[in-house]
Computed example of a mutant assay.
Amino acid sequence: MLSALILLLNLGGAAALKICSFNIKSFGESKISKPDVLDIIVESISRCDLMLVLEIKDAKGKAFDQLMTHLNSRSRTRANEFSSVISERLGRKSYKEQYAFIYRQKMLSVKSVYQYPDAQTGDEDAFAREPFVVWFSSPKTEVTDLVIIPIHTAPEAAVKEIDELFDVYQNVSQLWPSDNFIIMGDFNAACGYVPKRQWVNIRLRSETEFVWLTGDKLDTSVKTSTKCAYDRVVLRGEKMIEAVNPESVEVFNFKEEFGLTEREALAVSDHFPLCITVNQAQTKG
């Protein structure tokens, strides 16, 4: 039954650009080894043109390559439809994670990558997992390039890390000549980690040049017992903001889509993917 549902979801080929993020909880060899779980992950990725994958915890470095092989083997349009770029293992002490971007090659290409050094004088090591920033060329959309700053905050430091993303933006904007920024990922920006009284202290929120597409009541958590807007998307740049319809924000509820029990869904992740759509380029006539 699952295979039949998956065949119905080939959304590749749309001219608009669907950009998503997905915290695949503790992604590694265990999830790769479970066919039903892998099918859901692959389908969640393949319905997007660009997927930011968070919480890759694979010390051996094999699971992500296997994911890419499986993803491309399922392509119904062309060989090696998807390519990827992945960070080094990031984290303090022995706990490490990686950020990865998986993208459809006919829609995007990588212009440059930048590992934020997280070494500002007097504020070193502000992030548990410092952002791995990627500058993409996007010739088929209203903005012909875009920079994505990913984040997976440490829950207990969410307020500080979300605020520090302002510094990351400033650093990257001086490095690359682009005005089109997307800051996205698992902010842990809800359910006690960011008290309402703290929002005023977060520059990314108080500076009006940044547009938060995702409201505080959005639910990106899988558990029915929680309603938490953990995952967020923030835009910066006039053309970038104009190129994204706020109504395009989508939480992909794979639990409902595939008729899973909560236990089955949690075997995939405790987060649902969060997506936005960038408008296609207008044809000149």
Rank of each mutant, 00 (worst) to 15 (best):
L2K: 04
L2M: 07
A4F: 03
I6C: 03
I6N: 03
L8A: 09
N10I: 12
L11Y: 05
G12T: 14
G13F: 13
G13Y: 04
A14M: 08
A16T: 13
C20N: 07
C20L: 00
K25N: 11
S26L: 01
E29L: 06
K34N: 14
K34V: 14
D39H: 12
I41R: 06
E43D: 11
M51Q: 10
D58C: 03
A59W: 14
A59K: 15
A63C: 07
A63T: 00
D65W: 09
Q66G: 06
T69F: 09
L71T: 03
L71Q: 03
S75V: 05
S75G: 04
T77Q: 10
N80L: 10
F82M: 05
S83Q: 12
S83W: 15
S84N: 13
S87P: 11
E88H: 13
R89L: 08
S94C: 06
K96L: 10
E97P: 08
E97K: 09
Q98R: 15
Y99W: 14
Y99P: 08
R104D: 08
Q105H: 09
Q105R: 13
K106F: 13
K106S: 14
M107W: 13
L108D: 03
V110T: 13
S112C: 07
V113G: 01
V113H: 05
Y114E: 04
Q115V: 11
Y116G: 00
P117E: 03
D118W: 14
D118S: 05
D118M: 03
T121D: 12
D123C: 12
D123V: 04
E124N: 07
E124L: 06
R129L: 04
R129I: 01
W135I: 00
W135A: 05
S137V: 03
S138Y: 00
S138M: 04
S138H: 07
T144Q: 09
D145W: 00
D145K: 00
L146K: 02
I149M: 08
P150C: 07
I151R: 09
I151W: 11
T153I: 04
E161M: 01
E164F: 15
L165W: 14
F166G: 02
D167V: 15
W176G: 11
P177R: 12
N180W: 02
I182G: 08
G185T: 13
D186G: 02
D186K: 01
F187P: 01
A189T: 01
A190T: 01
A190Y: 09
A190H: 12
C191G: 02
Y193K: 09
Y193W: 15
R205L: 06
S206K: 11
T208A: 05
F210D: 01
T214N: 08
K217V: 15
D219L: 07
T220Q: 04
V222P: 06
S225I: 14
S225G: 10
A229R: 00
R232H: 05
G237S: 08
G237L: 04
M240A: 03
I241P: 05
E242F: 08
E247T: 04
F258E: 07
G259Y: 00
T261C: 05
T261W: 09
E262W: 12
E264H: 13
A265L: 05
A265G: 09
A265W: 08
L266G: 09
L266D: 02
A267T: 15
H271Y: 05
F272R: 00
F272H: 02
P273W: 10
P273I: 06
C275K: 04
T277P: 09
T277V: 14
A281N: 00
T283R: 05
G285L: 10
G285F: 15
